[in-house]
Every structure is written in C-alpha cells, then in structure tokens.
Design a protein around this nucleic acid. Sequence first.
DNA 1: CTTTTCACAGTCGCGCGGATGGGA
DNA 2: TCCCATCCGCGCGACTGTGAAAAG
Length: 633
Amino acid sequence: MKNRIESNNSPGSTAIEFQEVDRTESDPGNGPKKYLSAGGNAMLGEGESETFSGTKAAPDGRKSSPVVGEDDLSSGSRYNLDGLGTDRYYISSSSQQTTDVANPCSLFPYAGQTGTVYAGSNGSRYSASLHYGSVLPPTGFSTAVCAGRSQFGSGYQFGQGPGCLYPSYPSTGTGIGSVPIPGTGTGLRAQVYLCNRPLWLKFHRHQTEMIITKQGRRMFPFLSFNITGLNLTAHYNVFVEVVLADPNHWRFQGGKWVTCGKADNNMQGNKMYVHPESPNTGAHWMRQEISFGKLKLTNNKGANNNSTQMIVLQSLHKYQPRLHIVEVTEDGVEDMSSDSKTQTFTFPENQFIAVTAYQNTDITQLKIDHNPFAKGFRDNYDSMYTAPESDRLTPSPTDSPRSHQIVPGARYSMQPFFQDQFVNNLPQNRFYNGERAVPQTNGILSPQAEDASTAATQRWFVTPMQQAGSNKLDLGSYEGDYSSGLLPYGIKSLPLQTSHALSYYPDSAFASMAAGWGSRGTYQRKMTTGLPWSPRPSPTGFPEDHLSSKDKIRDDGGGATTSSTWIETSPSLKSLDSADSGVYSMVCKRRRMSPGNSSTENSPTIKCEDLTTEEYSKEPSKSMGYYAFYTSP
DNA sequence: CTTTTCACAGTCGCGCGGATGGGA
DNA sequence: TCCCATCCGCGCGACTGTGAAAAG
C-alpha cells in the first residue's frame, strides 16, 4: 500500500508515494533474512509476533539479544569495523522483549530497514523528488502491508503493548562497514548511530514525553545521528519522520502511562522533517553529525508553513521517530534506479508520547536537568554540590558528581558527546544554534578554536581490549532493574575509571563517529603513534586528574595504559577543574517524585545508563560500546 | 475532571555599538 | 590620526517549564 505524501511547504514539490513492504533478502553468507517493513513491526504488540517469524538467527545459531555480555564487551569485536558482523548481536524476536529491555546500554546493532520502507509499487519509492514538509496520511504509513495484523498493522512503527520497551530487530548479517546492497551490487548500506542514546535511554526508561504546542516545541532530547556507509559522492536526502508507535491513546494515570482507547488514526498534518542540508553528499553526511535540533513538534494542524518545518502530532499518542536516508540525484531528485537507495532507521528509545503538559514529573525533572533552556528551573544551581554529601538529606538524582554527564553551556567541556544536546552553548559554533551538521573532521580548526576547545572537545576512544580489561560495566544489576522497570532517576553512579585506556583514532570509522559526539568542529585532535585500535596512554592533563580524590575513579586494570605521554594541558583544560564543580552542580537537587517510580530513589544499584552517560561525559571512547546504531541490511 | 492555552520569569546566544589597544 | 581587531555591555529574541485560567 502506498502512502501519498504531499508537500505543503515546498513550492513546486510534488507528491511522494511511499510503500512499505516486508522483504526477505538473501544476505550473502548469512542466508535469507526478513527485514522490517517501513511500517515498523519492530516493536511488536501482543499477537504480532509473527512479524518476526522470518528473522534469522545468527550464523552460529545463537540468538543474541541486545544485551551485550561481558564477552561481547570485552571481545572488542564490536570495535572492529571490518570484522564486526551484527549477526553476533542478532536480536531474536522471541527473547527480545526480555533481554532487550535488560540492557539498553548495550550496543544495539539494530537492523536497518533499509530499502524496504518506501518502495513504491512501481519500483520507485517516490513519485517525484523528495520535498520538504510532506504530509503523511494518518499513522504515517499504510496498514495493508502486513496482512494478518491488527487494524493498525504496519501503520505503526512499533506495535508493542505497554511495558514492551524494545522491539525485535532482525539481524542484518552485515558488518558495521559498508557493504554492497544485495541486488544492486553498487549501493552502500548505511549505518546510523544514535549519538545521544544514553540521554534518550534516560528519558525512555521513564517513558519519554515531548511537549507539543501550537507554535511548535523543539524536541528534547533531539535526534542526532552519525551516519556511515554512504557513498561518498552520491547525494542523499536525510529526513525524519514521526509515526504512531502504537494504536493506543495514552493517559497518565496512577503515576504511569496506561492505554486509554484507540489512537486517533486520522490525524492530519505533516509528519516529515527534512534536514535543511538535504540534499547533500554522502561524504557530507558522514563527515558531520546529523542533528535535528530545530525539529519542532506541534499540535496545530495548520502550523506548517514555508518557513518552518513542524511535525504535527496528537497529544497523548505515542510516536516513533524514524530516520530516512534517500539517495537522490545531484539536483535533489530521488534516484529511482534502485529500491535499495532508501534506507530507514528506527531507534526504539526515541519513542515518546506527545503531551501538551508534562505528566510524569521525572520527565520534567530530566528535562530541567538536561535541557540548557530550562536552566532557570534548576534549584540551587551553585550550591548543590558544595555541601558535603552527608549534609544532604536526599540524594540528588545524580548524586555522584561524576555522573553528571550532561551539562549546559560552557560546562560541557568534559561532555563532548552531549554537547550536541545543547544548542547555543559554545560561542564559537554559531551554526550549532540550529539544525546543523557537526564537523567530525580533524585538524581543520582555526588555532583559536582549537585552543579554546582543547579540553572540551578531545575525542577519546577506548580500545576494546582496554574496555574489556578494566572498563567492564556492571550490567547485571542494571539489567535487572531495567527489565523490571525499576530504573530510578535518582541513583548514584558507580565511580568509574576514566582517563586511562583511551585511544583516539581519527582515521577510523569509530573515530569519525565519535567525533560527532562532541559536536562542533572545535575539538582538539590528538594523535598517538599507536596503530589504530591500539592502546593509547592517557593524557596527564586530562581533567580527571584534577578531580578530587573523592571523585577519582578506581583504576582496576588500566595501569599499563595510564602512563601518559600526553603533555598538552591547555589552560582551558586546567580550568575544567573549576568547571567541574559547575558541571556537577548543574544537576538539580530538586527531586520531584512521580507516584509510579520513586521506590528506588536511593537504590545503590549501579545503573548502566549512568555509567554510560558518565562514560560519555568523560570518555566518549568508552561510550562507543553503547553507541546505538543500525546497520542497514 | 482532564486537557489545552496562555502569560510569565529565567537563561542563553546573537547582534549591535561603543570603548580600548596596537600598528601603520 | 586613522584603521583595524578585540573586548565588553546592552537589548532583543528564542527557548524553557511553571502555574493559573480556559476549554472541552
């Protein structure tokens, strides 16, 4: 079934016809696989499990869940772009619902829904060129594709019932690196990495809410991706679409979200947001972090105009953003030569419920804590962490200073990854104030910019072996908590080792990916003489060194890597010491309690997410392992 | 009673203009 | 003295969540 998309804000644009199909492809060396259709199906609701009946187990017969065991973490294979096959992380449909949820921090090798989403009946996905501000029919996509499904069918990206946090994803069988698209022999498969996944997860575990207003409200967290695997010279349109995630109407009752009738399936309005830089070359998209910070959500059906792209949503409905990458000709017209030139990527943690007013106070608090625009609502900003730990009656949501992975403004210096979540924070990056692509390239910075951001933007990577040896995350406890839905916001993070065992390989694909973490093109490029993926000594000037002993993390295995040959310690880096206090103090002490999830407020359980986010804040490299990504089939 | 709308206060970035300092 | 670059302060607008009022 095709979905006609009309442009309402792009002069001269023409309609687009999408078709979503389930496709079974034969992946060389891995046997046939069934890919998700555009309609999603990735997150299944009850009675929909048949969707994944065709998914293929990993070659070794193991059905891997997103839960990455220690072996996986330690193997380092995930960091081997050349050798990493996602099959090892195959997510089985049967086990996914339990194991997926268990560890949202693991590296999700989400199978891309590449080339299957918008295939038109005539072989073309679009009847004409892609255009901005297209309007999707209700629910985004057709419902007739998946026979035997509910009336909402594939019209919903995820038809999961309440409590099912993650969908199942079929294995792609492809490695992280680009591979030819079967059937074309020429195309490349993209891999998409959700840059700010830890933050999304943090919201997701409380059921993310997004405010919608008549004039439009920005998403927070906003969507931010890194893309690899594109043809360097080919042109692509990159856009986000928001579709209903399930067929339910939701309401917040008794401290939790519960379904309440059927979703309004006839909501009209634009569901697409095309990245302003579209179309552009694959090199452009891969060089930069693709952020959708200016994407606005509205409940005003008539809000769209030529100047502003806003996605029209309906309050109290659950939505799933999806990223589409469509190869186009140089002038922006879609290339119709191959169905495989449309690729769609969905991250379940991006799901949210549209609201006109926040329902869950935990979400409100998370927004306040992490959104720089809400800084004014943080209490005791300056004094929060000046008092001794024992003086505080109630642990702050992120009591450990080292868990403050998300900080606003100039305080982001040690949180390059999350800088992207905060617009207008770095003066030198004016383009960052909007939809932007963050340069990932190295060494193309002005000396001034490099100076100013030396400490703030260093890119660090941990090698797989190092992570295996000393950076294992205590996922077990997290799994339990997460799977049981008891992931409190207010938790203490585990002291983490940080500065050692870091490596930065600017020429590697991972380096490219991670470079986007920090956003802006201002990070200091540091090179070691080591080979790619080899251990790299930690920098002596790393701000970690400036932390108080209390904050210092244990070093339980990286001793060999701690001897540093890094000599650079810029003034800005030094200043981070003081900045740290600000960083840490930004976390709001105020703690609003939601009726539904306050039971584990003081739980000492180490939450993977905290680990992750902290890792992000201090060591983007370590976070690599938690970098959600899809690789298209 | 629930949901939506609106005005509000706070923070921040940007743009502008003036002040300042160095060099020609 | 003039020109240029830099720094600083101010005002404006964008953006946020809050809370009361309005609407359904």
